[in-house]
Design a protein around this nucleic acid. Structure first.
Lengths: 339, 339
DNA sequence: TTCCGTTCCGTGCACGTGCACGTTTTCTTT
DNA sequence: AAAGAAAACGTGCACGTGCACGGAACGGAA
């Protein structure tokens, strides 16, 4: 692998000149610049990553993380991923500042301001989908502060990357699983988190799209909302089952799975009901193991937390953007055997 | 993050002395050594990774890779992962030597010798499971040449890590999927690769264990072998279907899936047969998309190739062993929607 | 005392990059 | 032609570690 020093020797100039050309800082004769670029191309120069990282350490990189703070199992797991990566980045002299906020645009903008006041070099953001936030992301990009969105994405912003799941595809996969795991006449009930939250409705749309296209033996008889709350989930699920005795399949698009399963068991319908859910968490893992839940589709929250920081750090030290093809968060299906 | 320099200043000694203590190279007074260790603990010293990597570059690390060379889709994908990582490691001044060999112990030992002659610092090995190879891995460890096994593991060797799948668990998961995706009376046929290859039989054992325990409605009516060959697979699968008209489920433990599916279609049984396979490859992806194959369990060969090199490199530069809990290769279920 | 060997410790370089600073050359203006 | 500004280029340090080399202190033997 060629180095700047080697290129400098080949071109008969000093390292500084080569550096100026390669990072176009100006102040170099057009003719020598051309010569240097030619040589760099000929030897296939790629900056050495260890050198880049070492040089970046002088800046004592500070990264900010903004996540939603209602303590639920999903965000807890995201946070674990953040702290895992924080420890790794510590040995690169890079520190992390975490802010947990409510699901609110104004709070989010304020949190960004606080991070800026503390002079962060980049931000990982679980964005609230509003024009004001999108404008802010673009403004940060102009200021040279890169933003990586995670958990959920926003449209048409200049975030350098998104690390999270494709919710429509997850919903389609849930539909595909239910289609494959059932036969005969199926009456499905949907337990939505909230029809105001994009990722919940996206999953539902994906689910519906799949079964309408491929599995006509499944009909959606009812849709209820549990507001991501376990107690409320128990109540609405029990009511749903009592009102629709024919229901023999359930799809939970979000949280409240524990309460919902408890309701199914309370009604004695666990043997006759095929249940598909999202995310594996400690409270519901045993339901999967025991077969109450047939399958669960995971959003890999730990990976979302760790990988988004990793990408941001790489961008700031080596200027590398992640390859588009590498989808870090896949649609991860778990059943009793592989959970 | 504390550095060696800072520790040296706190202890009132030079960097060299601290270095000697932390890497116990000897030649340092017991009293000062103790003092330095105390300070290092107090400031929670962790070596800086960028510095370590930079220092390691002087050695111009050379890594060897030994894979089985019969060109099949699985190993092709492993090789893609190797080359992907090769490119990444190139910017750390680290080069990779790849050897593809036949499935044979003697050839494998010879390949190791060749790599040693070229002075590699570590080896990624898809090991042939024989005592001679295990002894060799242990001998390499004694010589200071770490070995990472991949694709398949060997018992009781001193390899520093294994990057690959748990085949028994994969088989169990295949059984679980078939159990969930079928009902009524199921007569299953098993198309084994070879009963001489451990990972094939492991998967079969896992499959059998799962359905015997949990899914009594499934019975295994016949087991055939296709030797991982597409043409042979077509032949034995067709014969299997003709001899057992009652068969309505198939489990392919290894390669030859394309030929097998062609046989099912030739017999017109694709609508009535639930098929579970391993690995997604270009030739069989469309079968999954079209629903001929209900589900496939992937061994993530690309990740096996890239991650094993990554772990080896990290060990050689930073002396880091991967955390046991982080299982890089998961049991990855794919259906039409998420393939 | 002188000499030598051992133990203990400090210094300097290499790895590759970014960047501040200083120096030389070239061009413009009076 | 002289002076000053601007362009073009070189040098040195910092980042953190490993390691080779060399020097100081100390002991024992002649």
């Amino acid at each position: 692998m060629a180095t700047i020093k080697e290129i400098a020797e080949l071109a008969g100039v000093s390292r500084g000149t080569v550096d100026r050309v390669l990072n176009n800082r100006g102040s170099v004769n057009a003719k020598t610049a051309e010569k240097i670029l030619e040589i760099a191309k000929a030897v296939d120069y790629k900056p050495n990553k260890a050198g880049l990282t070492l040089a970046a350490q002088k800046r004592r990189l500070k990264l900010g993380v903004i996540l939603f703070g209602n303590s639920n199992p999903f965000f807890d797991e995201v946070m674990k991923g953040v702290h895992y990566q924080e420890e790794k980045l510590a040995s690169y002299n890079c520190t992390i500042l975490v802010k947990q906020i409510a699901y609110d645009a104004a709070e989010q903008l304020a949190a960004i301001d606080e991070l800026l006041a503390q002079e962060v070099h980049g931000i990982v953001l679980a964005p609230y989908n509003s024009p004001a936030v999108i404008d802010r992301i673009n403004a940060l990009y102009e200021m040279g502060i890169p933003v990586v969105t995670t958990n959920t994405d926003v449209d048409h912003s200049r975030r350098i990357a998104y690390v999270g799941s494709n919710d429509f595809l997850s919903g389609e996969t849930a539909g595909g699983l239910m289609g494959l795991m059932t036969s005969g006449e199926i009456h499905a009930g949907i337990v939505l988190g909230s029809d105001q939250i994009l990722c919940h409705t996206d999953r539902f749309e994906g689910f519906r799209s799949c079964i309408e296209r491929k599995y006509p033996h499944i009909r959606i008889d009812a849709v209820v909302q549990n507001q991501d709350d376990e107690v409320e989930s128990f109540r609405v699920t029990q009511e749903l089952l009592q009102r629709h005795p024919q229901i023999n399949a359930l799809y939970f698009t979000a949280g409240g799975v524990y309460g919902g399963c408890k309701a199914v068991i309370a009604e004695g319908r666990q043997r006759s009901t095929t249940i598909i859910t999202h995310d594996k968490v400690d409270t519901t893992r045993t339901f999967v193991k025991e077969g109450v839940i047939s399958a669960t589709i995971c959003q890999q929250p730990f990976i979302q937390g760790s990988k988004s920081l990793d990408i941001l750090f790489n961008y700031l030290t080596a200027g590398e953007l992640p390859e588009k093809e590498l989808n870090y968060v896949t649609v991860d299906i778990r059943i009793a055997e592989n959970i």
